[in-house]
Design a protein around this nucleic acid. Structure first.
Lengths: 128, 128
DNA sequence: CATTGTCACCTACACTTGTAGTAGATCTAA
DNA sequence: TTAGATCTACTACAAGTGTAGGTGACAATG
């Protein structure tokens, strides 16, 4: 597995690392909203598991504390999430888009922007 | 919880019910691709769990076998999946759309179709 | 240097998910 | 009517996930 599968909480840890850059367990823990912040050792456990999965790595040591950094990119992790969702839909985006529209989360502006992005991509790809 | 959270396998069971309509455990099991088809009792367990979650219900009995039917709509379940994904992205669709484009899964046609759907929606919602 | 707070590391545990076996009820066909 | 097929209902269990306590090492400070 090139990209490890991450659980919800693991994702939140990664999120902290992506946002803050290399951090200690304590820093990651404190990045959680004070309301529903897991115990220090809970975060620590997840950090260890992420390390075992090679999603993060120890980059240095400050005092006796280890400092961890993401070893996989946010982009790659996000891609994986989306691919997983799509697999639920048989790989077809249409129903996904339909739901986004229905829920009012996809606006005309979003669509226009997507269109621009696609055109740009087309110009870059076609004239090979 | 109005809408129960479904696991991957539970989703597959639901999929069978949505596709085939009310079915017995055996029928659901046989709806799985022969390659990697779970044991009868595995499906049965999931069916029981789905029943406990009120996602399906017993509608009748044929012989000594119960027949189950979906109690939640595919659409509602799909919506939930998407909302869950979006929550990972802080509720913002833009990065989702960006990834769909990058992975080549979102085409210009898809976008145009989405646009038409949105315009239609706008016409229906605004004049009121 | 002794105390106090922090951290690492190990261990534990309950809950969820996927997987399936077993025992006994029930149906069905000969 | 009885033996085999099928089903239900119950039980079990390993892996994964979230949660955290305990113990000893280490650092900072009076």
């Amino acid at each position: 597995m090139t990209l490890p599968k991450l659980t919800k909480l693991e994702h939140q840890i990664m999120e902290a690392l992506w946002n803050r850059g290399a951090s200690s367990v304590r820093e990651i823990q404190e990045a959680f909203p004070e309301k529903d912040r897991p115990a220090y050792t809970t975060v620590q456990t997840m950090v260890y598991r992420l390390e075992a999965k090679k999603a993060i790595k120890r980059v240095k040591k400050i005092g006796n504390a280890h400092v961890f950094a993401a070893a996989i990119s946010r982009s790659a992790a996000q891609r994986r999430l989306i691919d997983e969702l799509l697999s639920f839909f048989g790989g077809r985006i249409q129903p996904v888009v339909a739901h986004l529209i229905e829920s009012g989360k996809l606006t005309l502006d979003d669509v226009d922007e997507a269109k621009r992005a696609l055109r740009k991509l087309a110009r870059k790809d076609k004239p090979k």
